[in-house]
Design a protein around this nucleic acid. Structure first.
Lengths: 229, 229
DNA sequence: CGACTCCTTGACAGCGTTCAACAGTAGTGG
DNA sequence: CCACTACTGTTGAACGCTGTCAAGGAGTCG
């Protein structure tokens, strides 16, 4: 069976089961994408679901004049491209060199009507996670300032990359800006401001390696603030 | 069985089946809420789901300093309050006097594991609709201008209220602003600008009755703030 | 070494917010 | 019926956060 891949280099397919979804006769294949290559496009048929082994992926929507809103970043372990509809509602691109496992979408949905209920519930849980993330993102985009947005972004990545000391961001300033509804200059300025407050510092010379020195102060910046209740 | 209602006046409960969800022994009860009363709060247990018979509802999140982001408006026929989790992630309030039908949440989920698959799929479809709306809202909040936002809002309401000539908005300027990530003054100015372009006009003296005169021109405003290219 | 990408920083402008005044409407009670 | 209050919406003026435009540094790669 051949799987079409929009671009990027492909490899052969060792059928290994990932840990997340119940492993009910779902066959997974491995594929690789170069940095910047498209994995699937908005409005394309959603025939496959993806789990990241290595790398990072952005999913986004575009306006006709080029304005872009990134809905989410996907990191190793994440599943993306899962849809209830027949088509994708985002474009997905590899941010850096990325390895994914791909499975046929229908194998997860189990025939749509008489399928395995536990699998159906797993799919629903994943969709719900996406919804929850999007809902929190609405509040961020609509009602938070530039500094709050950047601080919240750093905290989110800090929790998800979970590296001991230095977090290595796979994405550039432009991606961060399009995720937060800002320009890359504003993101850069906010990061510089946080650095001047000694809340973080840049490691190395790539500016993508960031060490967080004061997470609680950073959390204050992020939530001038979030409702406790 | 008693159902707790946060506030507002309640009535007795004729067990009638709504048309939307498959009518599998789900008992629905009718409740009424006064304008401004809370239907459920964020982080409260999500024991019930709601379908609107009359009125309008807003669902929102708050920051501790009072900033508010409305995630969605719910109109007659809409189902809201459905959650995969055990708790609500938004607060819901009646915008105007509102009548809803309420059903126990668990009756829709069918026992979580061995339930009716078609009901499970219906729930997933509803969650997916919410997700799709939120995803489009992300692009709106993150990447569109004030005029584009207001124009898009009018088009959305035009499609959902589907009244012949004049659309009667149930919500005020403040609600619109908090839905679009703007201030009420900016919303008011954008509406005035559209009125001066003869794209719409206000009917009556409430400023909430709006007649759309040129939907195609309005659609242009919704996707391109200034020039095309 | 030149071309390229990515990022930072500065100067400035503008869009949207903030602050304020005012008009229209509705509800209340004398 | 009118005064009083509260609420909603419009409009003006000034401010400021963020975007725009521009320059330059630093790393990468052919």
């Amino acid at each position: 069976m051949l799987v079409r891949v929009s671009s990027g280099k492909t490899t052969r397919s060792p059928p290994i089961q990932p840990n997340e979804l119940a492993a009910q006769n779902v066959v997974w294949s491995e594929f690789r994408y170069r940095a910047g290559s498209e994995i699937f496009g908005e409005a394309e048929p959603a025939d496959y679901v993806y789990q990241i082994r290595q790398g990072a992926v952005r999913t986004y929507k575009l306006l006709s004049d080029g304005r872009r809103q990134i809905g989410a970043f996907h990191l190793p372990g994440d599943i993306f491209g899962i849809e209830n509809d027949e088509v994708h509602r985002f474009t997905a691109e590899a941010i850096i060199a990325t390895t994914v496992w791909i499975a046929k979408r229908r194998s997860l949905f189990g025939g749509l009507g008489d399928g395995d209920v536990s699998a159906t519930n797993n799919v629903r849980d994943l969709i719900t996670k996406n919804l929850e993330h999007a809902e929190n993102h609405l509040l961020l985009l609509g009602r938070q300032t530039a500094l709050e947005k950047v601080a919240a972004f750093l905290l989110e990545m800090d929790g998800r990359l979970e590296q001991p000391e230095v977090m290595g961001l796979p994405m550039g300033r432009r991606d961060i800006a399009d995720y937060l509804g800002l320009t890359l200059e504003t993101v850069s300025r906010a990061l510089s401001a946080l650095r001047e407050e000694s809340i973080l510092s840049f490691i190395g010379q790539t500016q993508r390696e960031i060490a967080l020195h004061d997470r609680s102060k950073l959390a204050q910046r992020a939530t001038s603030g979030l409702h406790s209740r």
